[in-house]
């Protein structure tokens, strides 16, 4: 074996990538050749120094949590099906408009203790939280217009459903605009209406649980919530409007849904 051959074989020797026979040949050459012996010694020493040094890295706990949270695991948030599996990139520093609302929603969903039987109640609480959040300055609308033909296309490609946007201006409910929100681990569309000084958030999501043909009444934290499902979608209307007026909103909206071509 000459020095050139030996040099190319030093590394497999150092790395234990050789069978014993080859290793013996290289070591035999190194014992006779001081130059190759020096190299072998230096590379081994360097490797030993690297092994002793702390070169490994520990992934930050928040990264681990973020990855786990994005998996559709059974958790306190209930079922998060695959289509909602999205890893938020840098959720706490994201420059997108929903960043704050999103992290607030995630934080809120941690606070909620949800057992499957209480799921409905939990979703209602999430809906109310999202409503309260939306009332903070600058959070109510992503698209601000009273034109239903602007609001509806705005949702295209942003969410996997086409929320029915209905102009109820003639009924005394002014369409203000729309927004993407995040409730119970799912992206939802919100259509925002106003009567007098009272905002109404109408949240629309793909129906996942049982159908609620009849409207369910709830109140949480002083807000009225109306929930029903229709045409494969779940609807929640939330407002600080009185129960009578919110019922009126639902009564006007539901038939209009079937009247409109959407």
């Amino acid at each position: 074996m000459n020095c050139a051959e030996c040099e190319s074989l030093l590394h497999p020797l150092i790395d234990d990538e050789f069978d014993v026979g080859h290793a013996r040949d290289v070591e035999a050459h190194a014992t006779e050749c001081p130059g190759c012996a020096d190299k072998l010694g230096a590379f081994r020493a360097m490797r030993k120094a690297m092994a002793a040094a702390d070169l490994k890295q520990t992934a930050p706990t928040r990264l681990r949590r973020r990855i786990e949270a994005a998996l559709p695991l059974p958790s306190a948030q209930g079922i998060a099906p695959l289509k909602y599996f999205r890893l938020p990139r840098r959720p706490f520093f994201g420059g997108f408009a929903l960043g704050t609302a999103l992290s607030a929603a995630l934080a809120a969903s941690v606070v909620l203790t949800v057992i499957r039987t209480d799921h409905e109640q939990a979703v209602a609480a999430g809906v109310v939280s999202a409503h309260i959040r939306s009332l903070q300055p600058g959070h109510l609308m992503d698209v601000e217009t009273s034109d239903q033909h602007t609001v509806k296309p705005w949702f295209d490609g942003k969410i996997d459903l086409a929320p029915p946007v209905i102009d109820l201006g003639a009924e005394g409910f002014t369409l203000l605009g729309g927004r993407l929100d995040y409730i119970d681990g799912k992206s939802v569309a919100s259509i925002v209406y106003k009567r007098g000084k009272h905002e109404i958030n109408l949240f629309v999501a793909r129906q996942l649980g049982t159908e609620h043909a009849n409207v369910t009444d709830r109140t949480a934290q002083g807000y009225n919530v109306r929930h029903w499902s229709d045409a494969g979608l779940d609807f929640w209307a939330v407002s600080d409007l009185g129960p009578t007026e919110l019922n009126e909103f639902v009564r006007k909206y539901r038939p209009a849904l079937h009247g409109s071509s959407s």
Binding site: K56, Q57, L63, I67, L71, P72, I79
Partner: peptide, 22 residues
Amino acid sequence: AEQEKARRFRDAALPYIDDVFA
């Protein structure tokens, strides 16, 4: 089935996060 897959994935893949991060 999704949850089961997610659980299997977490148990198999997450232990290597330090190597991946490095």
